[in-house]
C-alpha cells in the first residue's frame, strides 16, 4: 500500500492505495464520488472521464498512484456551485436520455469549451468521439455545445 495525496474537487485527500488500483475505483468506491461511471474498464466508452490537472482522462486507465500530488476534478467539482451553463444547455437540448454517459460527456465538453470557446461542428464531434452514448444519436449533445459557442459570439 502507498499513501497518495491529491486534490479532489478542490479538497485535499490522502488515502492508502494498492499499486494496481485504478483511479476510477478509488474515487467511486473509496472516496464516494459517484458521477464517473464504469462502462467498459478499458478506455473505450468515456463514462469515467475526469479532469487530471485540467485535462480530460479516462479514470479507468489511470492508476491511483499516478495522481499523487495532482489535481482531479469530476462533474461534482465542476458543478460545485450549481449547474453550469453547459449543464443547463444539456437540459434545454435533451442531450441525455438514460443519463449514464452524461457526467463523462459534460466533463469532456467542459474541457472543449474552455480551450475552444467557439468550436466548429467538426471540432465538437471530434472532441466527443471518445464518449459513447447509445440513446440520443449525439445530435442533441452537439447542439447543446454549439448553443454555448453561439452564445459567446453574441
Amino acid at each position: 500500500m502507498t499513501t497518495i495525496t491529491f486534490m479532489l474537487n478542490g479538497e485535499r485527500r490522502s488515502i492508502a492505495v494498492e499499486p494496481w488500483e485504478i483511479l476510477l475505483d478509488v474515487v467511486r468506491d473509496r472516496l464516494g464520488i459517484k458521477s464517473p461511471k464504469a462502462g467498459c474498464n478499458r478506455g473505450d466508452c468515456g463514462t469515467c472521464t475526469v479532469l487530471l490537472d485540467g485535462r480530460s482522462v479516462r479514470s479507468c486507465l489511470i492508476l491511483a498512484v499516478e495522481v499523487d500530488g495532482h489535481e482531479i476534478t469530476t462533474l461534482e467539482g465542476i458543478a460545485a456551485d450549481g449547474l453550469t451553463a453547459l449543464q443547463e444547455a444539456f437540459l434545454a437540448n435533451d442531450s441525455f436520455q438514460c443519463g449514464f454517459c452524461a457526467p463523462g460527456m459534460i466533463v469532456t465538453a467542459t474541457e472543449l469549451l474552455r480551450d475552444t470557446p467557439h468550436p466548429t461542428e467538426g471540432q465538437i464531434k471530434e472532441a466527443l468521439a471518445g464518449n459513447l452514448c447509445r440513446c440520443t444519436g449525439y445530435r442533441p449533445i452537439i447542439e447543446a455545445v454549439q448553443s454555448l459557442g453561439r452564445r459567446c459570439h453574441e
Binding site: S35, L83, Q87, F96
Partner: peptide, 9 residues
C-alpha cells in the same frame, strides 16, 4: 422531470 438529476451527476 429527472433532467437535473441526470446532468448534475
Amino acid at each position: 422531470l429527472e433532467g437535473r438529476e441526470k446532468v448534475s451527476g
